[in-house]
Nucleic acid binder design. Structure first.
Length: 427
RNA sequence: GGACAGGUGGCAGAGCGGUCGAAUGCGCUGGUUUCGAAAACCAGUGUACCCUCCCGGGUACCGUGGGUUCGAAUCCCACCCUGUCCGCCA
């Protein structure tokens, strides 16, 4: 949620920011609506003050015992009707404005490159080189089933299209990565959480998934609960409606959760195998920090995420998203992309963003500033990392001519020393 | 799921329908005292929005939402949450 006072002070800055995102927001109408709400509020509150005074007078008169008591009550009643009407009008206008604000995206930071879509994103760093093969590298959706570590057909039997199963060393490899990620985060000072995978609508609103992106969420038919699309949602909202002790900042949290996404409208595009599925595992990092250090903290977080890819020896790059490609709640986003030799393309395995105070306003997450007054925190989050695409890159990068796949040395301790995945007898 | 009990300020804990944003205690902050500390004493100590040049003023918030009333922390209804017991269950 944007800061209405800031908007009022410099509406043109917001207009520019929204234009950069490719949105034409009627700034004048918004200003007018804001002014109207405040006028209605003032009127309702003034009437309420009069009514309160009248009521107090009646209380005093009743104790004193006066003849004019009934007349005073009648006057108060009339005033009350008037006040009630004014207050209803005020409430309706406030609700409408608030609802409208929920649909306005976060302005991007000035450093974010202007652009329309992903074609305008800026590559800011590349690590390594694409692996070379003495044979034609195959995609994971061929390698996986052949090695007996992925099974897409049976997943479709269970849940329809867009799901995957991992089998044997595939499942174990995924679990090894999760453990390695979390162990590393904890060593880096993150606190690990285990959180609900089902949350209330208000929680989804706090991080910005609702109300605008309801069609991307799985919902329960008989309960007011939604499946999380990322651990960002429960982790960030852990501190909703709280005032944090500044001595604790920055708070660094991480969690492993499955992520559930309907992917409405994404059918057909890069959806083979594990590339884009309705349910996938992810380890997520979430920071609560101060406005002053948020941007620097984002770089630190990106460093934490890229470190894994380097350790795994996977060719990867860092991309700064342009204004048109930056997500609704984010102010600045860097994607980490890993190279898929099997498809000769980049796969996003992490997205690290600062949300400035946008989520903090929605979720009401504050801390005590130097003056002792509550201020909104800045929230950051990033994948660290998303599992399926790491598996894709690992399998495709380390595939051998004989169809086996080598395990990078860093992961071997998490796999009981296993160095290689060879085709296994399947049942 | 059923039966009880309860949800009040950072915590504990009062609160006859009117002067309650709310007693009291603790905690916290500042001060006095002290060589210093403790103790004691004094003062202060919620959040949000609105009006105002300042001083200051107004409104709202006692789980949430409705209702009754001139007036609700106090009465009524619904819901949510917590605790205890029962049932069911990994």
């Amino acid at each position: 949620m944007i800061d209405l006072a800031a908007f009022r002070a410099d509406p043109e800055a917001f207009r520019r920011a929204w234009t950069a995102r490719g949105l034409a927001i009627d700034v004048e109408a918004l200003l007018a609506e804001d002014a109207r709400v405040r006028a209605l509020k003032h009127r309702a509150e003034t009437l309420k003050a009069e009514l309160n005074a009248a009521s107090r007078a009646i209380g005093a008169a009743a104790r004193a015992g006066g003849a004019a008591l009934e007349e005073a009550k009648a006057r108060a009643r009339a005033l009350g009707d008037q006040q009630k009407a004014a207050d209803d009008e005020r409430a309706a206008a406030e609700r409408a404005l608030h609802e409208r604000l929920l649909y306005l995206p976060n302005p991007c930071l000035p450093e974010v490159p202007l652009g329309k879509d992903s074609a305008d994103n800026r590559v800011v760093g590349v690590w390594g080189e694409p692996p070379r093969f003495a044979f034609a590298p195959r995609p994971h959706w061929e390698l996986g089933p052949q090695l007996g570590i992925m099974d897409f057909e049976r997943a479709a039997k269970l849940a329809g299209s867009g799901f995957a199963t991992l089998r044997g060393l595939g499942a174990r490899l995924s679990r090894a990565l999760i453990n390695w990620f979390i162990d590393t985060h904890v060593a880096n000072g993150y606190t690990e959480w285990s959180v609900p995978h089902l949350v209330l609508p208000a929680i989804m609103q706090g991080t910005g998934q609702l109300p605008k992106f309801a069609d991307q969420l799985y919902r329960c038919r008989d309960d007011e609960l939604l499946l999380i699309p990322t651990a960002e949602v429960p982790l960030t909202n852990l501190h909703a409606d709280e005032i944090l002790d500044p001595a604790l900042l920055p708070l660094r949290y991480c969690a492993y959760t499955p992520c559930y996404r309907r992917e409405a409208g994404a059918a057909g595009v890069g959806t083979r195998g594990l590339t884009r599925v309705h349910q996938f595992d992810k380890v997520e990092m979430v920071w609560f920090t101060t406005p002053e250090r948020a941007r620097a903290d984002l770089d630190t977080m990106i460093g934490h995420a890229t470190w894994f890819l380097s350790e795994l020896g996977l060719h990867h790059r860092v991309v700064q998203l342009c204004t048109g490609d930056t997500g609704f709640s984010a102010a600045c986003t860097f994607d980490l992309e890993v190279w898929s030799p099997g498809t000769q393309s980049w796969l996003e395995v992490s997205s690290c963003s600062t949300f400035t105070d946008f989520q903090a306003r929605r979720a009401n997450i504050r801390y005590r500033g130097p003056d002792g007054k509550p201020r909104f925190v800045h929230t950051l989050n990033g994948s660290g990392l998303a599992l399926p695409r790491c598996l894709i890159a690992l399998v495709e990068t380390y595939q051998q001519g004989d169809g086996s796949v080598l395990i990078p040395p860093v992961l071997r301790p998490y796999l009981g020393g296993c160095e290689r995945i060879a085709p296994a007898r399947q049942g």
